[in-house]
Simulated assay, not measured.
Amino acid sequence: MLTGIEVHPDLGFGITADSYYHSAEHLMTNHFEHYDLTQQVEMPQNFLFRHSIELYLKSLIIIFHKELNIDYGNVAFDSDDPEAFVDGKWRKLYSSHFIDKLYDYWLNNLLLPNIQKLTDLAPKGDWQEYKKITTLFRIISKYDQDSSYFRYPITKNSALDNEKNTMQKFKAKDNIEDLINEMQEKNGDKKGNLTMLVFDNQDNIIEAFHKADNVLPEVRDALYEVASYFHGIHIMTRVTLCGGM
């Protein structure tokens, strides 16, 4: 896989996915200065994992079509302009970004119907569906089906946009003393957290925000697990089905 992209069987989608995947891993464990005070700090990591999944899926779709000699409808299986059958029609793979639909196509049109052929071609491969991965796709797609949720602060998914925000708005007490007492009772012995208050000219609290300790942990963990799964599946496929290419 150290050859030029132009000779890769998947047109370079796989090794590009690897770059996004490893960059996301690096961000997970290498925090920059003032990391804990930076808003939206996990969005780049989540975006990179999510994009790596999309690229891994496109890599696998291309490889499966080529190795199984399956045409893209009227387009030859070895074409450099691959497609996926989505929502009842063939669509260009380069402009298909709905991650759940790409997964559904790869799983139900390429993997599951061809397990015996894949086993014959590459008996050392692990050609099966992992139900947990299928379940995790539902979590990811609820928030970021089209690769926009973790790229932009505001998206078409406006009902869910606030959930990714580090600073969460809350209804505060009318005066600062009551608010402090409430926060102390709520936090107990836990480490203190960041709270931002906005006052009017009469020192009344008009807006209040607190820093979320954990932003969308279920989505973050799902992205990491699914990306790690496809990182491994991609390597396995290249080694067993593509002869290491």
Rank of each mutant, 00 (worst) to 15 (best):
M1Q: 04
M1E: 03
T3Q: 13
G12H: 09
G14Y: 07
G14L: 08
A17T: 02
S19P: 00
H22D: 07
T29M: 01
F32E: 09
E33N: 08
D36I: 08
E42A: 03
Q45W: 10
R50K: 11
H51S: 04
I53S: 02
I62V: 15
I62L: 07
L68V: 01
D71Q: 06
D71W: 12
Y72P: 00
N74S: 14
F77R: 03
D81V: 12
P82R: 14
V86H: 06
K89N: 13
K89L: 03
W90T: 02
S95A: 09
S96M: 12
F98I: 04
Y103I: 01
N108I: 03
L110M: 05
L112D: 02
I115T: 13
I115W: 10
Q116G: 00
K117E: 09
T119F: 05
L121W: 09
G125D: 05
D126F: 11
D126A: 08
E129K: 14
Y130P: 00
K131P: 00
R138P: 01
I139S: 07
Q145A: 10
D146E: 14
Y149S: 01
R151L: 14
P153F: 15
I154E: 09
K156S: 13
A159C: 05
N162Y: 13
N165Y: 15
M167K: 05
F170H: 09
K171P: 00
N175Q: 12
I176E: 01
D178G: 14
L179R: 01
N181C: 04
N187D: 07
K190C: 03
K190I: 05
N193D: 08
L194T: 11
Q202N: 15
L216N: 04
R220V: 01
D221W: 08
Y224L: 09
E225A: 06
A227T: 02
S228F: 08
G232S: 07
I233T: 02
H234A: 05
I235Y: 09
T237P: 01
T240Q: 13
T240E: 15
G243F: 10
G244M: 10
M245Y: 10
